[in-house]
């Protein structure tokens, strides 16, 4: 999919909460020892949720973009604080935006990339000048479930605007693939999701990501070696490495955006935070491939080209690397209190 008029990213911001739960802590409590597939995961504080983390990342993105007005705000998440009451209107209020379209989008872990696609259409058709796409989650994992090693918290936000000299990256093309695949789900009013273990791999993650990326290659004529960086959704450390290899990408191309070992799976924010980490160090002219995955299931693949204005964005917002470095370790009992699994 390509917009009629060129569209770009004018600003971005990420937010990674302060607390880290080592996977050895989950293993200690539920397995008697050992560790999970990742080293640590980012855990939201007791007073943080999807709203607060969305606002933090959005403030950074707006500051970098240097714009005053948004025509649309989309929050992509599966962990809304309210079942009925939009997250996006609270974000809009905090940003001082009122004459704007605001909506919450849900598609498991790929709700943010579909927000980018919708905004590309709205901006590319001239309906709005600027829009904000946010990916954010406080991911849930049932105590003792494999998900608990990686289900993490974080957010990333992107200001999508008409392409001009201030764009830090152009959105060149996107391609999607969806099917009805029940690999992971959470029924209404259920607290924790369920999943089909190994079924989440081959017929779900790998099948859909490969389809969307190969579709993007076909539509653009690009090949893996044309990209300096590639970022894949990262439910665990292994899946993105394997899908990258299957598609012909090298370990060097995915290294910068592969954050699961350090912060876990931030669901709708997972590949977007990876993209933010890549933009933190990318140079003008670099091409970036981004491929999300959402259970249920689908994948959106993008091609971005970094622009000269990226250099002006340096230092405006904290880098992903700096936010990861600031983390402090907590134990399992503190984690259960912070995530509301243990209440007074």
């Amino acid at each position: 999919m390509k917009s009629k008029e060129r569209v770009g990213i004018k600003g971005y911001g990420a937010y990674i909460p302060f607390q880290r739960l080592p996977s050895t802590e989950v293993a200690r409590v539920w397995k008697g020892g050992g560790s999970g597939p990742n080293l640590e995961k980012a855990v939201a504080s007791i007073d943080e949720d999807t709203v607060t983390m969305a606002i933090e990342a959005s403030q950074y993105a707006m500051k970098m973009a240097g714009i005053e007005e948004l025509g649309a705000i989309f929050v992509g998440t599966e962990s809304k604080p309210y079942a009925v009451k939009p997250t996006s209107t609270i974000v809009a209020q905090a940003l001082g935006q009122h004459y704007t379209l605001a909506a919450d989008l849900e598609f498991a872990c790929k709700a943010a990339t579909e927000a980018v696609q919708v905004l590309t259409g709205l901006v590319g058709s001239g309906m709005i000048q600027n829009g904000l796409a946010i990916g954010v989650d406080t991911a849930q994992g049932r105590p003792g479930d494999e998900l608990e090693y990686t289900a993490a918290s974080g957010s990333a936000a992107f200001v999508i605007s008409k392409f001009d000299k201030d764009a830090i990256a152009s959105i060149d093309c996107s391609a999607s693939y969806v099917s009805d695949t029940g690999d992971f789900w959470r029924r209404a009013q259920e607290r924790y999701p369920r999943h089909l273990s190994r079924f989440t791999g081959e017929p779900a993650y790998f099948y859909h990501v490969e389809k969307s990326v190969r579709n993007l290659f076909q539509e653009t004529g690009l090949k893996p070696s044309d990209f300096t960086y590639a970022v894949f959704h990262q439910p665990n450390p292994r899946f993105p490495v394997e899908v990258a290899a299957r598609l012909g990408f090298t370990a060097g191309q995915i290294k910068t955006g592969l954050l699961n070992p350090l912060i876990g799976n931030t669901y709708a924010a997972s590949s977007p935070i990876g993209l933010a980490a890549v933009l933190d160090e990318a140079k003008p002219g670099n091409k970036i491939l981004l491929a999300s995955f959402g259970s249920g299931a689908g994948s959106d693949a993008f091609s971005f080209t970094v622009q000269d204005a990226i250099e002006k964005s340096r230092g405006v917002s904290p880098t992903v690397k700096s936010m990861i470095a600031k983390g402090t370790k907590i134990d399992y009992s503190t984690y259960t209190k912070f995530r509301g699994k243990l209440t007074k």
Partner: peptide, 17 residues
């Protein structure tokens, strides 16, 4: 300054930020 939950009105009330 950061933005956080300030008050939570039980399981069914509103959340103040």
């Amino acid at each position: 300054a950061v933005i956080r939950r300030v008050r939570v009105d039980g399981d069914s009330g509103q959340i103040l930020y």
